[in-house]
Simulated assay, not measured.
Amino acid sequence: MAPPVSGYKLNNNGIPNFEDLPLRPTDPHYSAWGLYGEKDELGTLNRLTDERVAAAAKDEIKTGRRISLNWPLDAQPQQSFFSRHVFTQSLIRKSPRVVNDDVWTFNSQVSTQWDGLRHYAYQREERFYNGVTMEDIHGVNDEDGGKKTTVNGIHAWAEQGIVGRGVLVDYHSWRLAQPAADLKPYDPFKSDAIPLEHLQACLAAQKTEVKFGDILFIRSGFTATYPQKTDAELSAYRAVVPHHFGGVERSEAMLRWIWEHFSAVAGDQPSFESWPAPPDSPHILHEVLLSGWGCPIGELFDLEKLAAYCEAQKRWSFFVVSEPCNVPGGVASPPNILAIF
């Protein structure tokens, strides 16, 4: 675990300025280890204070309309990207009673997911959030009778959930409305990057204000495009290793924007940032967000119905309720998420 850290100043939002990262010069780039204590497992979810959540509920819940953001667990029925175990269901007759049970088996990242703090480490330093090692994760806790450790597990997020004000950046709709000559090509199935300036232009066009502690959702067009692909096309994409996906740009400016505003980030694509990352890139968002800040990354969120409703209402902010599965030591989880208007 990272030792306590001191000597930094907090700004008006109660966090260090981006320029002060890392908090200790010996820690990995941009990291905020120790900000919430050496044993913290919530990271940027600490920004979702009771007061902030209550204010979001008061301001955002007006009609009671609820929209699920969960892609079906079997949305990739035969094969999945990243060779993850697809969803299977065993339906069991409980004869002679007229009763059924079922058993589900699936990789926690095969459909809509929150990436947890055990998922992706700083690759060079081989450290997860707050300095946790692979040995810490795969070891046993001698103080708990030799049970497997649960450090940085997804269960820590289940206690209070990921709940607060959400904002949708409907980049896909915004992009389709722009003159083609003004934009570079963007394909969700290529390593194309979404510039920060485009996300900000989309927010401005929507007249959507971002508030500190918001939960960010970006509709890139992946789940809108996926159903249009044939099985042969999808197999061809999966055959390319590493896979290629569009996503937000990997830049210091993007990192600064996320640090200064959000408690969690999510998108409809398989990788939140464009993928694959160049070798030795200092701006791999998975490293910094998950292992540097403890910031949840959501992927494969189904934002189609949400985008349609936001457009109809001319309102792209809402209340978010997400309850990750309570799996001690879990790496990731379906979000079980609703947007409430």
Rank of each mutant, 00 (worst) to 15 (best):
K148V: 03
K147E: 09
H286G: 15
T26W: 10
N130D: 00
Q200D: 06
D192R: 09
V320Y: 01
R24Q: 14
R24T: 08
G146Q: 03
P25Y: 08
I67T: 13
E323C: 09
T208L: 10
K229S: 06
T223I: 10
G246M: 08
Q78S: 13
L35H: 04
S108Y: 04
G330I: 02
P22Q: 10
F272Y: 14
V140A: 11
V132W: 03
S191T: 06
E260P: 03
N12W: 09
D136C: 03
F272H: 09
S333W: 01
F301L: 11
N100P: 00
H138P: 00
V241F: 14
L73C: 01
T150E: 08
Q160Y: 11
L69A: 12
A266L: 01
R66S: 15
A204L: 08
A332V: 02
H155T: 05
L73H: 13
P3R: 10
P334C: 04
I15E: 14
K184V: 07
S317T: 15
D187L: 09
P4I: 00
S191C: 14
W71S: 14
S191V: 07
Q109T: 13
G131P: 11
N326C: 11
R165W: 03
V331A: 09
L73T: 07
G164L: 09
V151E: 02
V163I: 14
Q160T: 15
S251I: 04
E273W: 00
F301P: 02
G213W: 12
E233G: 01
S31R: 05
D20N: 13
Q113K: 03
C202R: 00
H85W: 06
S108D: 06
D280S: 12
Q313S: 15
T225R: 11
P188L: 13
A156T: 15
Q178V: 10
Q113F: 02
Q76A: 05
L10C: 04
L73G: 10
I284M: 12
W275S: 15
G221W: 04
P242L: 06
D136E: 03
S31E: 01
Q113R: 12
P279N: 10
I92F: 01
L183I: 12
V167K: 02
R256A: 15
H155F: 05
S90C: 10
G153V: 00
T105G: 04
A312T: 11
S274G: 09
A57Q: 14
H29Q: 14
A121K: 13
G330T: 04
G247T: 05
K147C: 12
A32E: 00
K62Y: 02
F189Q: 08
I137P: 04
V320S: 09
F341W: 12
T149A: 12
V240G: 00
S271D: 07
H155R: 08
W104I: 03
Q89H: 14
D214W: 00
R165L: 08
R47H: 08
Y122N: 03
S235F: 10
V163G: 05
P242E: 07
D231T: 08
E38I: 02
R65Q: 12
Y171L: 13
P195I: 13
A180I: 08
M134A: 13
W71H: 11
S333T: 11
E249K: 05
V210G: 02
E233Q: 15
P3T: 03
V140Q: 10
W104G: 02
P4N: 11
P96V: 11
L35W: 09
T150L: 05
R219I: 01
V327K: 07
A239W: 04
Q269T: 13
F222L: 09
R256L: 00
